Computed example of a mutant assay.
Amino acid sequence: MWGTRSNRGSNSVDCIACGETVRRSDAREYDKEGDRWDRKGKQFEFLCKECHTGLCHQPRDELEELLVDIDAGGLTEIEFLTRYCQAVEDRYGPLDHER
């Protein structure tokens, strides 16, 4: 009925975070849209187990839209942080700076 994962092409993949080439069976699928279960028409990127473990696994609803809205791809680090913080405050209210 369902094919095994081992027949999905290459036996090795490159980690998008560190660049290491690992066996496909030792990698984790990464979907930038955050919806890895809706598989139709998608090509996944991969992370090695170590980089995957280091990720924040919190929901990221609205993140892609926010990044597009602030034109994040062409900004310096300072410009990105300034625009990102302002966009978050505009959408969700003041940032809590106390810990």
Score class of each variant (00 low, 15 high):
T76F: 01
E89T: 01
L95R: 01
G54L: 10
E33L: 14
D26M: 10
C48L: 04
Q43A: 07
P59E: 11
R23Q: 08
A87C: 08
V22R: 01
A87T: 05
D14F: 10
R28S: 10
E77V: 14
I70E: 03
R83C: 12
L63T: 14
S6K: 06
F80V: 07
L81D: 13
E33I: 09
K42G: 02
D26E: 15
C85Q: 14
C48G: 04
E98G: 06
A27F: 04
E50Y: 04
E20G: 03
Q86R: 12
G3N: 12
I78R: 09
G73P: 07
E77P: 04
H57F: 02
V13Q: 06
H52N: 13
Y30Q: 04
D90P: 01
Y92T: 00
D26A: 14
F44H: 06
K32C: 13
Q86T: 11
E64D: 10
D35T: 07
R60L: 15
E89K: 01
A72N: 05
C15F: 01
V88N: 08
K40A: 13
K32I: 11
D38M: 08
C18L: 04
L55K: 09
R39Y: 09
K42H: 03
G73I: 10
E65I: 08
C56G: 08
E45M: 12
A72R: 07
A87E: 12
T82D: 13
M1I: 07
T82V: 06
C15Q: 05
R5Q: 13
V13L: 02
H97R: 02
E89Q: 02
G73D: 15
G73Y: 15
D71N: 07
I78E: 09
E79N: 03
Q43K: 13
L67N: 00
A72Q: 05
Y92P: 00
T4E: 13
D31F: 07
Y84L: 15
D26W: 10
R60E: 08
W37N: 08
D35H: 10
C56Q: 08
A27W: 03
R99F: 13
G34V: 05
G19M: 02
E79S: 05
R36N: 09
V22E: 01
T76E: 03
G3T: 11
T53M: 05
S10L: 09
G73H: 15
E50C: 05
R91N: 01
N11C: 10
L63C: 10
E29P: 08
R8W: 06
C56A: 12
L75A: 02
Y30T: 05
P94V: 15
C51P: 00
